[in-house]
Design a protein around this nucleic acid. Structure first.
Length: 426
RNA sequence: GUGAGCGUAGCUCAGCUUGGUAGAGCGCCAGACUGUGGAUCUGGACGUCGCGGGUUCGAAUCCCGUCGCUCACCCCA
């Protein structure tokens, strides 16, 4: 307790919906991100880092003016030069903007890009939902071939298994394209006009504003009505249908389990054809850990050349919750060794040893002041050290340091020159 | 934006119904044990009881307001 803490000044707290990730949390985040780099890298995706602030128009044009994200959840402000800027609520628009801005389409072939970073939406916070949240996403631009969809989903399922998730279901659907979607929407509106009066208040509103969202309603009483509404896959034009079937065939060939969910819809306007989602049961109401899909017209919407694309975004905060619940990815000893010393002469030797071990990349801690051995070993134990190295008068005289394995309790004398090897073998 | 629950020690919480000197466990510090941790025992430090106002001789407890957190709706990652 800091006795100097002022009682009269109110401490400043983190902004609502934002949070501090402390070292004990971050170790897990880093392991997940290491796995992203390993797995996505193996599929030849390159990392991009785009700005967190973007022109507001970028999201209005891509995500859609009438979506909840754009109409009521963005952090938008006027810059000092009266330019409207927005803290990015998602990153696909930024990646496509960068793809166009740097003419990456001129380099031939498809471009595979991924990103990890914070996004901002002014929702009401709850479990798995924050105003500053993190997404891990990947995009493939430059091909509309269904094999791309399949490869993306293959990479995704491999990644999830590698971070320890086992029980998850890939939900997949097709939402058609600009040719067949209007016909489906007409059919849906027509069907809704006859039944919406019997539905919940939210559905009556959605039936007019965004009929696709009616399909996502969770009110039990509405389910029989929703079951009877037309399915998008029955309205796909021949090209979209062939694409969808090809994707499903590819998934089967790779033994990737999936479930067709005709009612799967996405909240962003740019999606076309393949859409998908993976949910986890441990997350509470916000159970979707990732979502994504194809967005073949997006580049043109942003003033670029035709560049069909597909991508996904994983909610990293939610993934961390799911990985924790799965109990995988246990970190090892964050601290390899603690150097315990007795007396000033040993202190000098300890400082030298500590410096040398650290220079070799071994994580080592030591005490700043002379302390009883009991206290030093207690510190070592509390800090989770794998080993304690004991240096006192006897060790200085013999030239051999006592090394105690704190897991087994076994102890032996080791030459200082051999210590680095001794600590890192295993 | 709407609703509900909860704010008491560093952490997890009890105490509130029926107002009467702020508690427990864990953690932390020290000692028992003057060079051997995790166990045990003993002792110790740390609290504007979220904040403001009201009722009362007296409020953690009752009332009003307010802020914060959490969960849910909504929406989405």
């Amino acid at each position: 307790m800091d006795a100097s803490t002022s009682k009269s000044i109110q401490p400043i707290r983190a902004v609502k919906g934002t949070r501090d990730l402390l070292p004990r949390d971050v170790t897990l985040w880093q392991k997940i991100e290491d796995e992203v780099r390993r797995t996505f890298g193996a599929y030849h995706f390159g990392e991009v880092r785009t700005p967190i602030i973007e022109p507001t128009a970028l999201f209005a044009r891509s995500v859609g003016e009438d979506t909840d994200i754009v109409s009521k959840e963005m952090y938008t402000f006027l810059d000092r030069s009266d330019e409207s800027l927005t803290l990015r609520p998602e990153a696909t628009a930024s990646v496509v903007r960068a793809y166009i801005e740097h003419s990456l389409f001129n380099e031939g072939g498809v471009r595979k890009l991924y990103y990890i970073g914070p996004m901002f939406r002014r929702d009401r916070p709850q479990k798995g939902r924050y105003r500053q949240f993190y997404q891990i996403g990947a995009e493939v631009l430059g091909s509309s071939h269904p094999a791309v969809d399949v490869e993306v989903l293959e990479m995704l399922t491999l990644f999830l298994r590698r971070v320890g998730l086992r029980d998850f279901t890939l939900l997949i659907n097709s939402v058609g394209d600009k040719n067949c979607r209007p016909q489906y929407l007409n059919a849906l509106r027509e069907a809704l006009s006859g039944v919406k009066a019997q539905m919940c208040g939210d559905c009556q509103r959605r039936a007019d504003t965004n009929p696709l969202r009616v399909l996502d309603c969770k009110v039990p009483a509405d389910q029989p009505i929703i079951e009877a509404l037309p399915h998008f896959i029955d309205y796909l034009d021949p090209e979209c249908r062939a694409h969808f079937e090809s994707v499903l065939t590819g998934l089967c060939a790779r033994e990737i389990p999936y479930e067709i969910k005709p009612r799967l819809v996405r909240g962003l306007d740019y999606y076309t054809r393949t859409t998908f989602e993976i949910a986890s049961g441990v997350l509470g109401a916000q159970n979707s850990i990732l979502g994504g899909g194809r967005y073949d017209g997006l580049s043109e919407m942003l003033g670029g050349p035709p560049a069909p694309g597909i991508g996904f975004a994983i909610g990293e905060d939610r993934l961390v919750l799911a990985v924790e619940a799965a109990g995988a990815l246990k970190p090892g000893h964050p601290l390899t060794a603690y150097v315990a010393w007795l007396g000033e002469a040993a202190g000098a030797a300890a400082a030298k040893l500590t410096r040398e071990l650290r220079a070799q990349g071994i994580t080592v801690e030591t005490g700043y002041e002379d302390a009883k051995l009991k206290k030093s070993l207690g510190n070592a134990s509390r800090l989770g050290a794998g080993f304690a190295i004991i240096i006192g008068e006897g060790e200085l005289a013999s030239g051999l340091y006592q090394v105690k394995d704190l897991t087994t309790g076994r102890q032996e004398a080791v030459e200082p020159a051999r210590l680095a090897e001794y600590l890192t073998r295993a």
